[in-house]
Amino acid sequence: MGVEASRLSEGLKAGDRGSIARCITMAEDDPKAFSKVIKGLYDPKKIPHVIGITGPPGCGKSTLISQLAPIIAASGHKLAIIAIDASSPFSGGAFLGNRIRMEDTLSSSSIFMRSIATRGAKGGLTASVMNALITLSCAGFDLVIVESVGSGQADFDILNISSTILLVLAPGLGDEIQAMKAGTMEIADIFVINKSELPGADQAKRSIMAYLSSQQGKNTKKVTTTSCVSKHGIKELADLTLEHENGVDTAAFISKAFGTEVDRIAKELMSKSIDKLTQGNAASIAKMLDEGVDPYSAALELLQKLEK
């Protein structure tokens, strides 16, 4: 394991994509080994900022990201993209199809992309994304675009760790804008009216601006229009995003998010140790139960054996 860890460590440092990819998985599969790999590389001040991109389906988020990402990368950032798709609540599987729109962009640049499923997340999605963020930081990435599913708990989890939030909308969705969870409208930093080549784009922009000016407090939020067909407004959006990024200090919420991570990882490691214990002692547990020992006493007896 020592050889493996140092090979991966070297790989991360060198930005080797295979090592990055393997480490993201390893953070989830084997946190103990992962912690060895990132020793010496991990620096909390270097955790990449997250640009969270959300919005209802059908607004062209993926295509927009495929055009936005290269511009951001070209302005001197080492950029990665994490795309999130919902897992099936019935089977636990998922169809991760976000790469369909990205391949041309990715093959001609150094942008790294990873597809992650929500996996019925109870905060578990944040964990997967955190694993990726920490791995990427060790490989020198400073900015990560996270494209989220667009609604629900998973969406909020991502937005909670984003330093800049883009809400992507499209004309003709009037009703949906009303119906959108108030929360998302409140925390978005930049409102993007995509598909601006369609009629109703200006109206949509005006109604968002009206909404914003009706809110209390100083309004620093921006509204902009983009069209992936004509490529209009993409550069402006990149500028707005990076401008917002410069003004953000993520130390506080990274610290909070990491605190939650420590708790989660500890619980997970503990749970794995207990599984190992129960499996390794299956025979003696069975013997105890046969001899009439109650399950509670048997469990306590078992815990005595727990190794540090």
Partner: peptide, 23 residues
């Protein structure tokens, strides 16, 4: 299973790159 689908007409090179990046 979590199925990653890269779309139509991928080259063998693209397939390997994706397989590795997505581990």
């Amino acid at each position: 299973m979590e199925v990653i689908y890269p779309g139509l007409l991928p080259t063998p090179e693209e397939i390997i790159n994706i397989a590795i990046d997505e581990d």
